[in-house]
Design a binder for these strands. Structure first.
Lengths: 238, 238
DNA sequence: CGAACCTTTGATGGCACTCAATACAGGTGG
DNA sequence: CCACCTGTATTGAGTGCCATCAAAGGTTCG
């Protein structure tokens, strides 16, 4: 972990924070961290909790410390699509914006560092580097969204599922279990299906197919180990 | 058209510019317009010309004055997906970024107001309002990208084509032809197919279907008139 | 008028969806 | 600890939508 020159000036909570140097906090000087730190509150969110409702202006903003947040859009007839996933240390919320069509929901247990709208917007006005960070995240999200457009538009079901697993594996820290690295899938099969524009049956079939080909191994339907990374990349048509 | 308080200070070229109050120019004061105006060059681009190549850092930036630019991503095996369309007065290029996977190509004849990279980046550093404009466009593009994610993930072929026509009709100015408003489709069937993740045959079939249902009328395969807007919205599942 | 290209239309097949049944995991209470 | 129950995931059979292959029709050039 990188250290600040005068760590004594950095709030204790921030010193050990996973998001200290990422998200928006990376752009802040110690004294600004103190200012922000006074008004933040850490929260732990249950899976399934709605964080930002569609069509409603968010009351606050937050940094994601751990867990996965899914951004969903709902069609008038009830069809649902996950339009993005956010991981630590992503920033949650849209400054200066009216409510959008998108709602945010905790996919797994999520830990947040939350602060009120006014605080962030005030700091942005005084600190151009902060706006630059927000801009950078928006561009990163835009690239990611366009990558998914390509995946949804061009790829077959099996390629979609493989691409999804690769995406997950690059954002989730694995833990060692026996001889191989495993990670918990933070989404249900229904979530994966909503993300990939497939049905849960098709997702399940593709996962089974990868398991039978010994590209991955699945434990209790909840954790996955990638046994053959190269094969997974091939399957994703990357 | 909105007027500046002292129009005499605004470059003549900008006074009559379609993008004067949109894109990034809307954030500029007359004196800054003069500064930028000195270093811009208007260009007219042939359809099919590549404006920004994938993997290469762009040499310059531009405002779109008219026409349509398609942003495409190519897969290793040759499959192609259009990940976004840009219309006037959108800004073209990504400040401070290394080359991305995406390439930009003129879909129709495109008129640009182009300027070198250094000029824009210098102005951004001195003018926070400009960065805010760029941020706002990135967020707009992000919303649009996520809308297409939903369309690609959830909608049927007929719904996709109807959604596409609605999208076009909201970005292209129609001209009166006989008794109804028409507009030229700036994309070939192949482009539409690449955008919607379909084949040209399927696109053609869906267009024929809408024509037979008298929702639209097609003239010489190139221009379209929306005869029944409500029916088109229904067909798009909006 | 003819050539090249784009678009439309038709016939067929495969991939993913739908419907249906079974299997599994986690939690609760006996 | 096991029986039971609920929600989630897997597997199977059949169907439908869209891709593929193939041919004909339009449009725009020279």
């Amino acid at each position: 972990m990188r250290m600040d020159i005068h760590n004594s000036e950095v709030p204790a909570l921030c010193q050990a924070c996973e998001a200290r140097h990422g998200g928006i906090c990376g752009a802040l000087e110690p004294q600004q961290l103190v200012h922000l730190g006074r008004q933040t509150r850490r929260r732990e969110i249950e899976p399934g909790t709605e964080l930002i409702a569609a069509g409603v202006q968010a009351e606050g903003y937050a940094n994601i410390l751990s867990g996965v947040v899914k951004l969903t859009r709902l069609m008038p007839d009830g069809r649902q699509q996950i339009v993005g996933l956010q991981f630590a240390p992503d920033f949650l919320g849209r400054p200066f914006a009216k409510g959008s069509e998108i709602s945010a929901e905790a996919a797994s247990t999520v830990r947040l560092c939350a602060f009120p709208q006014s605080v962030l917007e005030g700091m942005v006005r005084r600190l151009p580097a902060l706006e630059k960070r927000l801009y950078a995240q928006a561009l990163r999200e835009l690239d990611e969204a366009r990558e998914w457009i390509m995946i949804l538009g061009q790829k077959s079901a099996s390629e979609k599922v493989a691409s999804f697993l690769l995406h997950l594996s690059s954002h989730i820290d694995p833990y060692v279990d026996g001889y191989s690295d495993r990670f918990d899938i933070p989404l249900t099969r229904a979530d994966i299906a909503d993300f990939l524009g497939l049905t849960i049956e098709t997702v399940s079939r593709q996962l089974s197919s990868l398991r039978k080909a010994e590209v991955i191994s699945i434990h209790k339907n909840r954790s996955i180990a990638v046994l053959d990374f190269t094969a997974l990349e091939t399957a994703a048509a990357l």
